[in-house]
Design a protein around this nucleic acid. Structure first.
Lengths: 202, 202
DNA sequence: GCGTGGCCATGACGTCTGTCACCGCTGTCG
DNA sequence: CGACAGCGGTGACAGACGTCATGGCCACGC
């Protein structure tokens, strides 16, 4: 009656350390570890774990994408997202994408095992502090196009380059960015992009 | 004859997991864990560990600052920096600040214990891939003022704001940023700032 | 049917940005 | 001493940026 676990985290050290920690629990067993998002599905297929621990930021495919992929394939595995600092927007998107739990790596270690047990039992687990932060942050006011423009503006690229990446006219891009600047209460597109990114709006 | 360890990492889960991993080694014992940079010195004083594992990004005081502090206080502890993805500039600055080793969290777990042993034995340990990356990155071509201007430009602030923070004329700031843009081969200040940050030039 | 809102675009406007030339001042090194 | 590099500033200029008004197109809801 052990809970079979899969760990997905790009940092090998963290992954191995988490495995060591969870393997100490008598009712848990780590049956697979992967370092890339696009390796999760295959690992789930071959080992059929009870619970997946997913990081958000991974090469290959990010945690949100993995959740969507697992749901599309109707895999019975329940997923607990374990990620670095709480971007409230990630919480919303992760739960929408099918996550059964969401905790940050800053939580005390003993709580993780308990969160795994609750997820395995079918209970949804969300870090309470994150949940409140997510509510006060409010919903995402940006349109899809505004988000795309902001994502492309994150690195400071000129409007012409952004327009090229989005196959849009430079004027249109400037309009979207101007709108996003207004909605975020900032004064430059880079500030708006960072503001939105911090809230997980991108 | 066990190696006494102190762990400093802001993510409680990672910290606890690393402790679990390293405590499995017969010749190691974790004697202290802290989650903030400004708690390291006191912990070192009270537990006098043989080796410190330091993260770079921590609240309170970053890893580089901790290294400088420990050296100022002439603490005999040897420090191994264990951080997320390799910013070559961090490597250089960490070693200059007194680190005895530098590895990324992406390294295979078994190598960490070995790195700890080598640091404890007085050998300097540097991830080979990072060392080469640090060399090809070349030296930092930016002047002190250019770095300050870039740091203040990282969030996309307008020149006026940057000038206010640096107590400089807007024109001067523009000149520094223009110079930095030229040196980095970029075309906007935000791109230049990100470019420099990636190389640890800030 | 008609208002609403997102999408895409254009044009005009004023401001900000990036570049360049040039100034003086301070050190430092041959 | 003169050459040189960094620091701080000014002025001018082309181009980029942010704002606004306006237009057409489409989908949705009352």
């Amino acid at each position: 009656m052990v809970i079979r676990l899969l760990l997905a985290d790009d940092q090998a050290l963290v992954r191995g350390a988490l495995a060591a920690l969870l393997d100490l629990e008598r009712d848990m067993q780590v049956v697979a570890q992967v370092g890339r998002g696009d390796e999760v599905l295959e690992a789930v297929r071959s080992t059929s774990p009870d619970v997946c621990l997913l990081d958000i930021e991974m090469p290959g495919r990010d945690g949100i994408g993995v959740l969507e992929e697992l749901r599309e394939q109707a895999m019975p595995t329940r997923c607990l997202v374990v990620t670095t600092f709480g971007r409230p927007g990630y919480l919303r998107r992760a739960m929408d994408a099918g996550a059964r739990g969401f905790v940050v790596k800053d939580t005390p270690a003993p709580e993780l095992a308990e969160a795994v047990r609750r997820v395995h039992a079918g209970v949804r687990v969300v870090d309470p502090a994150l949940a409140t932060e997510s509510l006060i942050g409010g919903p995402n006011p940006l349109t899809e196009r505004e988000r795309e423009a902001l994502r492309a503006a994150l690195d400071g690229s000129p409007v012409q380059v952004i327009a090229g990446r989005l196959y849009l006219s430079p004027g249109t891009v400037r309009n979207y960015l101007s709108s996003a600047i207004g909605k975020t209460g900032t004064s430059t597109r880079v500030e708006a992009a960072k503001f939105a990114e911090d809230r997980g709006w991108l």
